[in-house]
Design a binder for these strands. Sequence first.
RNA 1: GCCCCUGUAGCUCAGCGGAUAGAGCGUCGCCCUCCGGAGGCGAAAGCGCAGGUUCGAUUCCUGCCAGGGGCACCA
Length: 562
Amino acid sequence: MSAQRKHAATVTTTDHRPIRDRLADAVAGAVARVAAEQGLELVVDPSTVHLERPARREHGDWSTNIAMVTAKRAGTNPRALATSVVEVLERSLPAHVVSVELAGPGFVNFRLDDGWLHEAMAAVLAEGEDGYARPDIGHGERVQVEFISANPTGPIHVGNGWWGSYGDALARVLARSGHVVSREYYVNDTGGQIRTLGMSLLARAQGADVPEGGYQGQYVTDLAAEYDGPDDVTAAGRWAADRILDKIKATLASVGIVFDEWYSQASIEESGAVDETVALLEAKGLVYEQDGATWFRSEQLGDVRDRVLRKANGDATYLAGDLAYHRDKFLVRGFDRVIDVFGADHHGQVASLMAGVEALGVDPGRLEVKLGQMVSLVDGDETVKMGKRAGNAIDLDTVISDIGPDATRILSLMSSLDQAATFDLASVREQSAENPVFYVQMASARIGGVGRKAAERGVARAPLAEVDLSLLTHPRELEVLRCLEELPEVVADAAVDRAPTKVTTWVRKLASNFHGFYHDCPILADDVDPALAQARLWLVEASRIGLAIGLGLLGVSAPEAM
RNA sequence: GCCCCUGUAGCUCAGCGGAUAGAGCGUCGCCCUCCGGAGGCGAAAGCGCAGGUUCGAUUCCUGCCAGGGGCACCA
């Protein structure tokens, strides 16, 4: 114990940057030194030095492959170069570094004292839930994320819930990493499908069967019972679409998905923007008439074929509207970047959309289309049927009321968008023991429990300045700290890769580490040294912050009790 | 036929250029005088096949095989 106290001599460095940056500087400096001493042609920029946390602890706390990636360029071999780099680094060890060694094919491994983790913990506590893990990689870039955009012709399905959870979590991740984000839902409230919906509604209202190709679902019958508008298919369709859209909004809000903008396709057409867009393309010689229709020469812009913009009957196609819409996004509203999240069944539109955007003079690199693969549902051993036109399909709303909003979101964010995933409702249903949501939320509840128990026993957290964090030396404590230290990079990676799933993986890891700590490190037991108890209470608080940030990015609640 | 995505443990999924590939569930075996055992510890079990690039490939490239989704004057 007193031995632990000795470590308390806090290592104060004036350099508060992340340890990774400091090590990168040291490595780059060492390489420069080696190059100078040995006359090698070798210059490395610190920002290009790759540093990683080795999977195996015996390989140290940090590791760099610098010798392996530069040896050839320098005209030497990896192990020889690494040996020299190690020698130079040993002359003056960077802060917290206890030893540097050469390993394997030429890795340079760093072993650090625990102080770097205590520093990381102090940073978590100092910056808090709002400030920690807020890497500015966006530099204020204005990005719009358009997602779901399901047609308001029926309840939204589970796939929309998945892609919606993705789009929303991506928006959260981008917002946290220095982007100015706007969430948008494009409402397809015009065109043939609306008339089909109106026709289906009117048929039901008259007590007739819905004609072939119409919408058969019970919701149409229910809406028909309320309808007392005109006998016009378009009017009836719009009326029904409005009702359905309200329902969709409510469903999405129940899982924490809210949009900044619900953009109406009809409004675009009515504004004349579609005509203007077609005229713009025409002015560029990209439009021609054939068979009574107006065509876009998209093939010469990378599409597999040319596309119709205006049908022979005079109606604008979906593409024409979509191009006007994207022109509005980029050229009118001025987003720097647009990310469209589509279902894989809309893959066919991507090439023509890209071609059109480019033709309108927008750098196509500013438009990203993420395709969500199809999802299938399973309930234990049973396959669950989905599909809008089928009568008894399971829709998103049904799933949410079955397994709850948090489970719905975490389930959606456990697998990558590119993976055609199978979700098992049974694995996540309330009251079930084998539930990944509970595992994470249990950590949150335990954190709350510690707070309640501490209050019960009259134990208050001392001011952080009076607490000796260096008492945290138990492997379980250090594992939690290692995990917390990674969060800023996890957020950055998730943003850059457009992969909020990385946050899910991290949250589960933090929960696992916390459970291990909780299990092995008593906090409020009588035989725990009060100074250590204080440090552990603050570790619980740091964990709370990390968990709150992570779950917040996923849109999952962090309950204080369960 | 062409385009996109995917093939990792019995199942569902992580890992996306690094040194002995992870988790949950399932199977087998341990741990409750302890702040919530809805926990913790351990065991068995895996990168579709073949080439290539690289100091190094589950990860990148090509081909093949298998599965899913697209290729409308529908949205």
